[in-house]
Computed example of a mutant assay.
Amino acid sequence: MGSLNFPRHLRLVRRPQFQACYAGGRRYQTKHFIIFVRPNGRDYWRLGITASRKIGPAVLRNRIKRLVREAFRLNQHLVPPGLDYVVVSKKRTDLPGLNLDMVQKQLMQLFQQIAPRTEKDLEQDPRA
C-alpha cells in the first residue's frame, strides 16, 4: 500500500464541481449518507463532502466531515478511480453516535456496489 496522505487534487472544492456531480451523477444511499458518483475523466478519484445546517451545530457537521475524509483516506486503495464522489450527510437523530468504524463499513458496502458498474459507466460516458 502506498502513501496514505490526502492531497488537495483529490478534493472537490468549488461549487461547480459539486453541482456537476449532483446533476450528472448516479445516486447511492447508505444509512447515514447519500453519495453522488460521476465519471471525472481522470485516473484518480476526487471527494467532496457536504453537511447542511439541518444536521446540527458546526461541531457535529465538522466531525461527520472528518470521519468521512478519514474513511476515504484510510481506504483509498479500495476506492474505484476515475470518479468524483460527493458525500452528503443525512439528517438522523443517531448521527452524534457515528464513529469511524460505522462510516468505513457503510462506504465499503458502497464501493462494492459501485466497482462492478464503474467500467460500464466509463465506457458509456463519451466525456470520460
Rank of each mutant, 00 (worst) to 15 (best):
S3G: 07
F18Y: 15
A58R: 03
R61H: 12
H9G: 02
A71D: 06
P116C: 08
N62I: 08
K54D: 09
Q113P: 01
V59W: 04
I49M: 14
L74V: 01
I49A: 05
R73I: 06
Q19K: 02
D101K: 14
L4W: 01
R38W: 04
R8D: 05
R15M: 13
N75P: 02
L74N: 07
S89Q: 05
F72C: 01
K31N: 08
R42W: 01
R69D: 01
N40Y: 02
V88I: 14
L10K: 13
R15H: 14
R127A: 13
E70A: 03
G25E: 10
G2A: 14
P80Q: 11
Q113D: 06
P80K: 13
Y85R: 03
K65N: 09
M1T: 09
R92Y: 08
L107M: 15
P81W: 07
D125I: 01
D101I: 08
I114T: 10
V79D: 06
K91A: 15
P39S: 08
N40A: 01
P39N: 08
A128G: 08
G48D: 02
V13M: 14
L78F: 04
V79P: 07
T30M: 10
Y44C: 09
F33M: 11
W45Y: 15
I55Y: 10
A23Y: 00
T30G: 09
T30D: 10
R27T: 10
T118W: 00
N62P: 05
S52H: 06
L110W: 12
L110I: 12
A51M: 10
L98G: 03
I49Q: 03
R53T: 14
A71W: 04
R15V: 15
K31G: 14
P39W: 05
Q124K: 14
F6D: 05
D43H: 07
D84S: 02
L122G: 07
A71K: 05
W45S: 10
Q76E: 05
R26H: 13
G48L: 04
Q112S: 10
P96V: 03
L95F: 05
L95Q: 04
R117E: 15
L83V: 09
Y22H: 03
A20K: 11
A128C: 14
E70Q: 13
F36C: 03
L110M: 14
H77D: 15
A23N: 10
Q19L: 15
R69M: 02
P80A: 12
V59I: 11
R46N: 00
P7A: 01
L12E: 14
L98F: 02
M1Y: 07
Q104E: 15
S89E: 07
A71Y: 06
D94S: 09
R61V: 12
R11V: 04
H77Y: 12
L95M: 13
L4K: 08
I49L: 13
